[in-house]
């Protein structure tokens, strides 16, 4: 009954996330609340890795396919998009590529600087 118990635990944390999302006035989605609470539970030892491992890995592995139905929803907004199609075709790729490059470079630069400092000490 390992998988059933793991699924129960994971859905329970999702439910806590849903509960917090409903009653706290912050724009934080249920999944993020659940993630933070599960992380705290793992850190405090209330929850053991073995309690969720296999089912959690399965869910993470199949996660990309879960975006497909929402992405297909794009077919319903094509008319609204047609007026600003050209700006979008430029803005979305440019900001995404630049964002990934800038974020990665800044993170990498700080990591390497602090590594050098540690070595000097």
């Amino acid at each position: 009954m390992k998988y059933l118990r793991q699924m129960t635990i994971i859905l329970f944390f999702s439910f806590i996330g849903e509960f917090l999302n409903e009653f706290l006035p912050l724009p934080v989605p249920a999944g993020i609340y659940g993630l933070l609470i599960m992380l705290l539970s793992l850190m405090s030892g209330v929850l053991k890795v073995a309690d969720i491992k296999e089912t959690a890995m399965l869910l993470i592995e199949i996660m990309p396919v879960m975006f497909v139905p929402a992405a297909v929803g794009i077919m319903d907004v094509t008319e609204e998009l047609s007026g600003i199609l050209l700006p979008l075709v430029v803005i979305i790729p440019v900001t995404t590529v630049a964002g990934i490059g800038i974020t990665g470079l800044i993170t990498q630069t700080i990591i390497r600087k602090s590594c050098n400092k540690r070595k000097l000490k």
Partner: peptide, 30 residues
């Protein structure tokens, strides 16, 4: 789209539990 999504939405149903599970790799790389 709505007819398609009537059953496809059950795939998306797992998105919240899957997001919650991202806590596991994060914990292992703390």
């Amino acid at each position: 789209y709505d007819s398609y999504n009537a059953s496809a939405k059950y795939i998306s149903y797992l998105l919240t539990p899957a997001t919650v599970c991202l806590a596991l790799p994060l914990y292992e790389q703390l």
